[in-house]
Amino acid sequence: MAETNLVLEGSRMVAVGDYARNDWMLRAAWSADEGSDLRVDRTSWPMWRVYADLAHILDDSQTIGLIDARAGRSFRVTERGVLSPYAVIHADYDDSLANKAALGAGVGLSWRQWYRETRYSAPSSYVDLSLEYRTRLSGDDRAEGLFVTLSFSY
């Protein structure tokens, strides 16, 4: 378990807005990766990541989940900037939808900009922008198309 991440969560969702809801959620998320850190000793290196997330919303009795796996190569193109082309496969499930499952695969490109280093430590935060195109392999049409993700890790 030292090489992976596991999150177990029990939370209260508080409705803010017309499309939100008050409910309780139980959730488990797991991930593992290699090659996602900034490498200053190389200009390129292999990378891969697997992420799985499963949640059950209690009062509405809704179960949702996803599995996302990617593998590719990272290229350090600036001192703190990394460009990573990769192949991706993504599956999701939502038992409240008419078409509960969707499976897609495709290619992606990610730009990760590292920051928050000090004189004595390596950068510990990043902004990540990913662009993917996936083709539907099975299930619902939501598995296909262009997907953009922006994430901040502080």
Rank of each mutant, 00 (worst) to 15 (best):
R73E: 13
R73M: 13
S74K: 03
S74N: 12
F75A: 05
F75W: 15
R76S: 07
T78Y: 08
E79P: 06
E79G: 08
R80A: 09
R80F: 12
G81Y: 01
G81I: 03
V82S: 02
V82F: 02
V82R: 05
L83E: 04
L83M: 11
L83W: 08
S84E: 08
S84T: 11
P85N: 09
P85I: 06
P85G: 08
Y86C: 05
Y86K: 09
A87N: 00
A87M: 11
A91H: 07
A91V: 02
D92I: 06
D92H: 07
Y93P: 01
Y93C: 05
Y93S: 06
Y93N: 04
D94F: 04
S96L: 02
S96Q: 13
A98K: 10
A98H: 10
A98I: 12
A98D: 14
N99C: 04
N99M: 08
N99W: 05
N99K: 09
K100E: 14
A101W: 10
A101Q: 04
A102Q: 07
A102S: 13
G106S: 07
G106N: 01
V107L: 14
V107Y: 00
G108F: 01
L109S: 06
L109R: 09
S110K: 10
S110D: 08
S110W: 00
W111S: 09
W111Q: 09
W111G: 07
R112A: 10
Q113K: 09
Q113G: 07
W114G: 03
W114K: 03
Y115F: 15
Y115A: 09
Y115L: 13
E117H: 12
R119V: 11
R119Q: 15
Y120A: 14
S121T: 15
S121D: 12
A122Q: 14
A122T: 12
A122V: 06
A122C: 00
S124Q: 10
S124I: 11
S125A: 15
Y126K: 09
V127T: 15
V127G: 07
D128W: 04
D128M: 11
L129E: 01
S130P: 02
S130Y: 03
L131A: 14
E132Q: 13
Y133P: 01
Y133N: 08
R134W: 02
R136Y: 07
S138C: 03
G139P: 00
D140W: 02
D141L: 11
D141M: 09
R142K: 12
R142T: 09
R142Q: 10
R142N: 08
A143G: 10
A143C: 06
A143W: 03
G145P: 03
L146N: 11
L146Y: 10
V148E: 10
T149C: 06
L150V: 12
L150Q: 09
S151E: 10
S151F: 08
S151T: 14
S151K: 13
